[in-house]
């Protein structure tokens, strides 16, 4: 089964041949490994030169990011500074020159740092077929439809409202043991709307809904966030892997969430 590579001018054309033994290749940082290691589940690579993949456009405070934009490109773009820290936490410099934001949405754990951040930011996906869907909905369903993400739209958070922390064992960088992203609006010193997302705490990036609720209206101090911390691993299913045990992840998740919440105030 040698590999056949098919190129298309538009994403829509490319999306039509997907499925079965054909896989869409973006930056290739995950897919090429499978090719190199002789994965038998596919024998066609589908790529596209659609310029829409590389676009970055803003409409008001909403920004549309092409799925083919790389981590390095995010770091360099003046309007994407709020995602700069997230992009910088992915891989090493060479990986960041290749890894796309679109591919990150499909990356299995321990990857998916950008997806975790985008989940906290309540991003939306635009598919090549023209459909739209929230990232949250996409992550929830297990049977990923065979279509291509065309672009991702996300609202620019108010200054200081978005916080991100990636915990890894290797310095200066390594894969994530767990990742936390928080979007937190404040109303009169108390917390308003909150979204908390964990990476590495479940097969896919997942919101900590119980913790979000517990933080609603709370004051941002040790005692105020107590209930939120106690609830933050509810509904999570962290892995037992070579990076850490699930026990350990459950123990340290509240610790890191606390650091993230308190460092801001």
């Amino acid at each position: 089964m040698s590999i056949e590579v098919k190129s298309f001018d538009t994403l829509r054309q490319a999306s039509e041949v997907l499925g079965g033994s054909a896989q869409y290749i973006a930056g290739g940082t995950l897919l090429m490994r499978k090719v190199n290691y002789g994965d038998q589940s596919f024998n066609q690579l589908v790529q596209s030169t659609d310029p829409a993949l590389k676009q970055i456009q803003s409409q008001g405070d909403e920004i549309l990011i092409g799925a083919g934009v790389t981590m390095s490109e995010i770091m360099q773009h003046p309007q994407l500074q709020f995602l700069g820290e997230v992009a910088r936490s992915v891989g090493g410099p060479a990986i960041r020159n290749m890894a796309t934001i679109g591919g990150n949405l499909f990356a299995p754990r321990p990857y998916g740092d950008m997806a975790t951040a985008l989940l906290a930011l309540d991003a939306n996906l635009h598919w090549a077929s023209g459909q739209q869907q929230s990232l949250e909905q996409f992550l929830e369903r297990s049977d990923a439809a065979r279509d291509i993400v065309h672009s991702i739209s996300v609202r620019q958070p108010p200054t200081g409202a978005f916080q991100y922390l990636k915990v890894s064992r290797v310095k200066p960088k390594g894969v994530s043991l767990l990742t936390v992203a928080v979007l937190l609006n404040r109303e009169n010193g108390r917390t308003g709307n909150v979204r908390i997302a964990f990476g590495g705490m479940a097969p896919e990036p997942r919101r900590a809904m119980a913790a979000e609720q517990a933080l609603q209206g709370a004051s941002l101090d040790e005692s105020g966030i107590q209930r939120c911390l106690a609830a933050c691993t509810e509904g999570m299913a962290p892995a037992d892997d070579s990076l850490a045990s699930s026990w350990y992840r459950n123990e340290v998740a509240p610790v890191y969430l606390k650091r993230l919440l308190l460092q801001r105030s």
Binding site: M1, S2, I3, Y37, G38, Q40
Partner: peptide, 11 residues
Amino acid sequence: DTERQARDAVA
């Protein structure tokens, strides 16, 4: 002849 062919046959 190629590494890929060897991998495919092993599978």
